Structures are given as C-alpha cells and as structure tokens.
Amino acid sequence: PEDEKKAKEALKRANGDEDKAKEILRKLGVDPDRAEELLRRLR
C-alpha cells in the first residue's frame, strides 16, 4: 500500500541505508515501528 511505496522510495533515497530510510519515513509521518517492519520486509 501507500506506506510500502514510501518505504521503497525512502530506501532508494537513502541509498539502501536503513537508518537513513527510517529517518525519512519518520519525517513522512510513518509510525517508527511500522517503518521498521516495512524496511525489514523489503530487505
């Protein structure tokens, strides 16, 4: 869904750096736990 698209985009923008991607997602208003879960799934 929408969050998943955001997560993929964030990872791309962060050049695969998960911590940076998490930060980006947090700024986009995605719940930190949700962000973590999404990134884990994309790994």
Rank of each mutant, 00 (worst) to 15 (best):
residue 6 K to M: 15
residue 25 L to N: 00
residue 38 L to S: 03
residue 26 R to L: 15
residue 4 E to A: 09
residue 10 A to Y: 02
residue 12 K to S: 10
residue 19 D to I: 13
residue 41 R to I: 11
residue 37 E to Q: 09
residue 17 D to Y: 03
residue 40 R to K: 12
residue 40 R to S: 10
residue 37 E to M: 07
residue 34 R to F: 10
residue 3 D to W: 15
residue 42 L to H: 04
residue 20 K to T: 09
residue 13 R to P: 01
residue 11 L to T: 01
residue 13 R to S: 12
residue 24 I to C: 03
residue 37 E to T: 06
residue 22 K to G: 04
residue 33 D to H: 12
residue 36 E to Y: 05
residue 31 D to Y: 05
residue 35 A to W: 07
residue 38 L to I: 10
residue 24 I to K: 02
residue 33 D to E: 13
residue 21 A to Y: 04
residue 42 L to A: 05
residue 29 G to Y: 02
residue 33 D to F: 11
residue 38 L to Q: 03
residue 15 N to G: 13
residue 28 L to R: 04
residue 4 E to D: 08
residue 38 L to P: 00
residue 4 E to P: 04
residue 29 G to I: 03
residue 12 K to Q: 13
residue 20 K to W: 09
residue 4 E to M: 15
residue 43 R to E: 06
residue 33 D to M: 12
residue 41 R to Y: 11
residue 12 K to H: 11
residue 37 E to H: 06
residue 27 K to N: 13
residue 12 K to F: 12
residue 26 R to V: 15
residue 15 N to D: 09
residue 3 D to K: 03
residue 25 L to R: 00
residue 10 A to S: 04
residue 26 R to Y: 13
residue 33 D to R: 12
residue 14 A to F: 04
residue 28 L to F: 07
residue 8 K to S: 09
residue 7 A to H: 02
residue 17 D to Q: 04
residue 24 I to F: 09
residue 5 K to G: 08
residue 30 V to P: 00
residue 39 L to W: 02
residue 18 E to S: 09
residue 18 E to Q: 09
residue 7 A to R: 01
residue 23 E to N: 06
residue 16 G to T: 01
residue 24 I to R: 02
residue 5 K to L: 14
residue 2 E to H: 09
residue 35 A to N: 01
residue 30 V to I: 14
residue 16 G to D: 04
residue 42 L to F: 09
residue 28 L to A: 10
residue 3 D to I: 08
residue 28 L to P: 00
residue 26 R to E: 12
residue 42 L to N: 04
residue 11 L to M: 09
residue 42 L to R: 02
residue 18 E to W: 15
residue 21 A to H: 00
residue 16 G to A: 03
residue 12 K to C: 07
residue 41 R to N: 13
residue 41 R to L: 14
residue 1 P to S: 15
residue 12 K to D: 11
residue 6 K to H: 12
residue 40 R to E: 11
residue 15 N to I: 03
residue 17 D to S: 06
